[in-house]
Design a protein around this nucleic acid. Structure first.
Lengths: 116, 116
DNA sequence: CATTTTCGTTACGATACCGTATCGTTTCCC
DNA sequence: GGGAAACGATACGGTATCGTAACGAAAATG
């Protein structure tokens, strides 16, 4: 079931969602932070700082900082790995799942409203 | 032609596009900046600072700053309105159109690859 | 005209992110 | 065991954004 859309639909969808995101989302996540969040919640665990850095093509401090910020907001949690205590395992939270669920709903709603 | 997608497709699409955006886009636009850019290019002119601020629900300095940054990158231009010289008219540029065209292509490509 | 309103910009101090380099801890390897 | 390597966090100086407030120019008001 390929997801085929026209250039007009594609940009229109991005426009509508981005607009509403700016309007209503008090969190104001960076593009990088959002990418990290989506990676954590959509890709099977385990997730580590190093792994996320490699996947996104950024340095480790970027991941650490983003996890700090999103951790304060309750979107993710960190736990040391007991098997290899150098590693840190990034874990999902209820609030994070809720946040992305709302984002998904927003995309769907805007997609539906896009070409009625 | 409604654009119907499942929650999985919606977030998956956002994930894929955001990821590639982080990977390849050297511009690193803010969510607000992207929203402004899309508004300028997808909504019929004229565009003013005040109008954009109202549409996005942000203050005017936010718009001015974003236009400064994106202006340096050649994504938009500003011109004083000769009919009412208090106003500033925001104009599109070739580079800006090209940038959004590439974004559209990226979304389409990722949408197609999403559920092959 | 003088005053008020409108519009965009600038000033200001605060906050957050950036990239590079370094650190402390833990594990690996000889 | 002892040194090298891996992992995540921290330090640092630099830059960009934030929100609030004030500013100058231009137009509308009466």
């Amino acid at each position: 079931m390929p997801l085929d859309l026209t250039p007009s639909q594609a940009l229109g969808l991005w426009h509508a969602v981005t607009l509403q995101q700016v309007h209503e989302d008090g969190r104001d996540l960076t593009l990088r932070q959002l990418a990290i969040l989506l990676e954590i919640y959509l890709v099977p665990p385990p997730h580590t700082v190093r792994g996320l850095a490699a996947k996104l093509g950024v340095t480790k401090p970027v991941i650490t900082r983003a996890l700090d910020t999103m951790g304060e907001q309750g979107l993710v949690t960190r736990m040391r790995d007991d098997r290899d205590r150098r590693n840190v395992i990034i874990k999902r939270t209820v609030d994070g799942a809720l946040y992305l669920e709302r984002l998904g709903d927003l995309i769907i709603a805007r997609g539906r409203a896009q070409n009625p």
